[in-house]
Design a protein around this nucleic acid. Structure first.
Length: 545
RNA sequence: GCGCCCAUAGCUCAACUGGAUAGAGCGCCAGUCUUCGGAACUGGAUGUUGCAGGUUCAACUCCUGCUGGGCGCACCA
């Protein structure tokens, strides 16, 4: 893995600060920022501002001294070839301007090497388990699960691209209270089908699909005690189909029932007991999670002898580590945020660093139709399902829309906008850019050269487009450090916009074959960035629309 | 009462995690094609970043306190 110019520059600056005996005054890590405006160069650093107070000198003076020294160090290195200017500007920022030839070379590399040149090897093969959706098999997936699915799958793609060894897992709650209620709901519907007058309790599953299951169970002569399992596996098939149509494939389906049978829950509790983290009180068994900073201790076995949800979950997370994963990522709904403390306590109790468990709370999405929110009434089976959204707007638009906002923010999902085939619909805007590029490449009659003279790309829009395409890796870096893939959707829209603007002003296929080759190279690079981004989102990249 | 999330243009959201003049889309107004896809592009108007303090050379961003909204605080899952 070659070092980026950014990292090399940072090294030179660090060395310079050591020379000037300023390095120890710097309290934080040295890094280079991207300016909001290209007028301020390609990178900048604010160290002169940070140092000014302690050194009691003006930031501009410090910046000037640093620049002087950096320039000298640069003459000794081959970086000098790529850095065109270093200036102190504004309040005391040090701005680095790269020579155009640097971008030409990177673009050439992107086109010859393809998406691989966009990879940053952050993961180095580290095994990561990302658990998401994990909905109870008691009904179709809701939009809340859908958003979790989109975020989880995309994040898994991104981490995989960055060199992590990622597994996707669905924790299957296939036993316990909810499954019992599900079984009883089916039983009542069967009796109803048999002509019996029944009273259907409110807390039971109300949806019409229960009738379908009842009919099926009746046909197959399922015994009453088996109805819960039968219904759960029936629904699981539906869920799997929904996920499949949404483009999500889980590597592992982890069954709670199997976990229970294995005896690992008991073993987990025994282990906790040995460490003296369990105690009995009022007939229940408690976990001392307060030792690890939880706000109160938690019951793991109720006074009636049944486990709470936490007991198998403790064993489950312990198993995740035992299976060799070094980093666990869980995506939960906002109703689970109170659960973070106890599960982190549990893994701490087993001696794992709680930092190796990242919990991402995925906020809810509200579906808008004709400008109005479609309200969810939870219990009655009257919620918007993933299936409905898929049927209405399709896989591409729904995945993109679910990823368009910061994961920790509420999301308004406008079904009507997602259906539109105009720039009002960001996914079409992005896919259109891709299709347009394909169309140009298709119309081209020159044979494409592997190496071309790119120095003819001097227009403002051309350079802006090259730089935008090359920004790809640093965007992925942001997704990685925030564990949030949404920035990728923002970036793809920006890249598309930069392309459309370029396209409108400059013709790719022209009389001048040198320029044509160069511009073809440029749009091929943009195509690679767009296509790679769309792949990571799990959205198709059509050549024609 | 406690905890988490949110509040930015009329609406939906950005602002690269503390940087330089807070930006896009929609909507509104006015424009751009004999040529690679007009599903596009250009220009115009719109802001006390919910309020009040604080930290900082620098705050939409961090801290404290309010206000308003969403969610959660089980021997439920």
């Amino acid at each position: 893995m070659k070092k980026s110019i950014q990292d090399s520059l940072i090294e030179v600056i660090r060395e310079t600060l050591r020379d000037l005996k300023l390095f120890d005054h710097l309290k934080e890590d040295l890094y280079l920022d991207f300016p909001t405006d290209s007028r301020f160069g390609d990178f900048f650093t604010n160290i002169a501002l940070k140092l000014s107070k302690e050194l009691k000198k003006s930031p501009r003076d410090i910046a000037a001294a640093i620049i002087e020294s950096v320039k000298q160090n640069l003459t000794k290195s081959d970086l000098n070839y790529y850095v065109s200017q270093i200036k102190a500007e504004g309040a005391g920022f040090i701005n680095f301007y790269l020579a155009d030839k640097y971008f030409y070379e990177k673009l050439q590399e992107l086109v010859t090497k393809g998406p691989d040149s966009l990879r940053l090897n952050k993961g180095a093969g580290k095994p990561v388990l990302i658990e998401f959706v994990s909905a109870n098999p008691t009904g179709s997936l809701s939009v809340a699960h859908a958003r979790q699915g989109a975020v989880g799958d995309c994040l898994a793609n991104v981490l995989g691209f960055l060199g992590f060894k990622v597994k996707r897992e669905y924790y299957l709650n296939d036993e316990g209270n909810q499954i019992n209620i599900l079984g009883e709901s089916v039983e009542l519907r069967i009796r109803e089908l048999n002509g019996e007058q029944i009273e259907f309790p409110e807390e039971y599953y109300q949806g019409d699909y229960i009738y379908d299951i009842a009919k099926e169970a009746k046909k197959n002569k399922i015994k009453t005690g088996q109805l819960g399992d039968f219904a759960a596996s029936y629904i699981l098939k539906i869920i799997k189909k929904e996920l499949d149509d949404f483009g999500i494939k889980f590597d592992i389906w982890y069954s709670q029932k199997e976990l229970g049978k294995s005896g690992k829950i008991e073993k987990g509790l025994e282990a906790l007991k040995k460490k003296d983290y369990l105690y009995e009180q009022e007939g229940a068994l408690w976990f001392k999670s307060t030792v690890f900073g939880d706000d109160k201790d938690r019951v793991v076995r109720k006074s009636d002898g049944a486990y709470t949800y936490l007991a198998p979950d403790i064993a489950y997370h312990q198993e995740k580590y035992r299976r060799g994963f070094e980093w666990l990522i869980n995506l939960w709904g906002p109703d689970h945020h109170g659960y973070i403390g106890r599960i982190k306590s549990a893994i701490s109790a087993f001696g794992h660093n709680p930092e190796t468990l990242s919990i991402i709370i995925v906020q809810l999405a509200t579906i808008f139709k004709q400008g109005k929110p479609v309200l969810m009434s939870t219990r009655k089976g009257q919620y918007i399902t993933l299936r409905e959204v898929l049927d209405e707007v399709g896989k591409d638009a729904s995945r993109f829309f679910f990823l368009m906002r910061r994961t920790s923010s509420h999301l308004d999902f406008d079904l009507d906008a997602a259906k539109k085939q105009t720039s009002e619909n960001p996914i079409f805007y992005v896919q259109y850019a891709h299709a347009r590029i394909c169309s140009i490449i298709h119309s081209n009659t020159l044979s494409l050269k592997e190496a071309t003279d790119l120095s003819v790309l001097k227009e403002k829009e051309e350079l802006a487009l090259i730089k935008k395409a090359l920004q790809f890796s640093s965007i992925l870096n942001i997704c990685y450090s925030t564990l949030d893939p949404y920035m990728l959707t923002v970036y793809l829209q920006e890249l598309s916009e930069t392309f459309h603007k370029f396209y409108d002003l400059h013709r790719v296929l022209g009389e001048d074959s040198v320029l044509t080759q160069a511009r073809l190279c440029l749009i091929r690079g943009v195509k690679i960035a767009l296509a790679t981004g769309l792949d990571l989102l799990g959205v198709s990249k059509p050549e024609k629309m």
